[in-house]
Amino acid sequence: MQLLASLFLPTYPDPPGPKVVSNAVAVARQLDAMLDTAVINVDIPDVSNALSSFLLDLPATIREVEATSRSRGKALLDAVAADAARCGVPLTRQELKAQPALIGETAAKEGRYFDLCLVGWTRDDEATRMTAEEVVFSSGRPTLILPGERDVGVLGHVVIAWDGSRVAARAVADAAPFLERASAITIVTVTDEKVLPSQDVAERLAQGLAVRGLRAKATSIQTGGKEIGIALQEHAVKIGGNLLVMGGWGHSRLRDFVLGGATEGILSNLRLPVLMSH
């Protein structure tokens, strides 16, 4: 059965980083996946009144913003089509609309119809981060967060952040397509952040993967006073990891996310592609 992946590209207030499209196509190619690309254009309600129209010409401003959003969306879809054709990746495309505050929610709801969600990440772009958060926590699907400023290459060395928790177990299961294609797998536990269920949790996971024909190395690290998300990423990069797999801890209350330390560290400063499940 072919894997179905969906790439979400918000076009407001700024487009995603320049490498998100090519990185997503490259990942779809590695997974032999069909890629659906959805641009999310902004739809701003007309809340003008006679005074605001006279002073600001608000309706004209709204039309201009929406036109810019649609133009960016078309350019992104054209770029995806060109990359997918070059790489031989089967592609479908769609245009969605959402009010500014509902862009992430729109992406999350659409993502439920696919096996894997892909979102971009750009430094100091709060809208990009909010979209990624919403997709991770509300889509019910694993979400691959891709850097938008550099090429990610082959996701061959997979690093699993493991603490024996429910969300970590979910992430490992969701990472099966990547693990099956991995050239190396490293399981990392952090020993100074919280109490682990036992001292051999990484070794037990390695044994379970071995039964499935996947060889994995178990190791442990300490944060050294750093945020756990930063420590995990730094270690993954240090050992040549191309993909970090982890559970996303957090919840939403009235659309305000309260994130766990590891999740916060990942979404505040992404260092490499991260597959996150909740």
Rank of each mutant, 00 (worst) to 15 (best):
D124R: 00
T191S: 11
V80S: 07
D256M: 11
V135H: 09
G260S: 13
D115E: 10
L118N: 03
D115S: 01
A26W: 00
D256K: 15
L243Q: 01
L243I: 03
I40T: 04
R141W: 10
P273G: 06
L77C: 05
E66P: 05
L55A: 13
R70D: 08
P16K: 04
G241S: 07
S138N: 15
T189V: 05
A38R: 03
G140T: 08
A216Q: 09
V80M: 08
L31M: 01
I62P: 01
A236C: 14
L58I: 14
L259C: 06
R93W: 00
G229N: 02
R86Q: 15
A108D: 10
R93C: 06
L56S: 11
A184H: 14
S252T: 10
A236I: 04
A184K: 15
S71N: 06
A206H: 03
G73I: 06
F8A: 03
P16I: 06
L232H: 03
S220Y: 03
G213E: 08
E64F: 09
L51C: 01
P100I: 08
V39I: 10
G248P: 08
A81L: 05
T61E: 15
S183Q: 12
Q233M: 04
S52D: 07
A184D: 15
I185Q: 02
G248W: 07
R72Y: 13
R150S: 14
K74N: 05
W162Y: 08
A5G: 13
A67R: 11
L3W: 06
G156K: 10
V39N: 01
E193A: 13
A231W: 01
Q207P: 01
G120S: 10
A24L: 04
S52N: 05
D43S: 14
Q94L: 14
T189L: 04
Q99T: 12
P59W: 11
K194E: 15
D32M: 01
R141S: 11
A231I: 03
G261Q: 13
A169W: 11
Q30W: 08
E203R: 12
C117D: 00
C117A: 13
E149W: 00
D36C: 08
G140Y: 10
L214G: 00
S52Q: 01
G224V: 06
Q2S: 15
G241I: 02
S48R: 08
M130N: 10
G241H: 01
V89A: 04
L270M: 11
S138D: 12
V195I: 12
S277Y: 05
L196S: 10
S6V: 15
T223E: 09
T68M: 00
I230N: 07
I103K: 05
D124I: 06
L214M: 14
Y12I: 09
R123A: 15
A218I: 08
S183R: 09
T128V: 07
E203N: 09
I44D: 09
N41W: 05
E149C: 00
W121T: 06
L91W: 00
T186I: 02
V80F: 12
I40V: 14
V152I: 15
L51R: 04
D151N: 06
E110A: 15
G156M: 02
R170A: 14
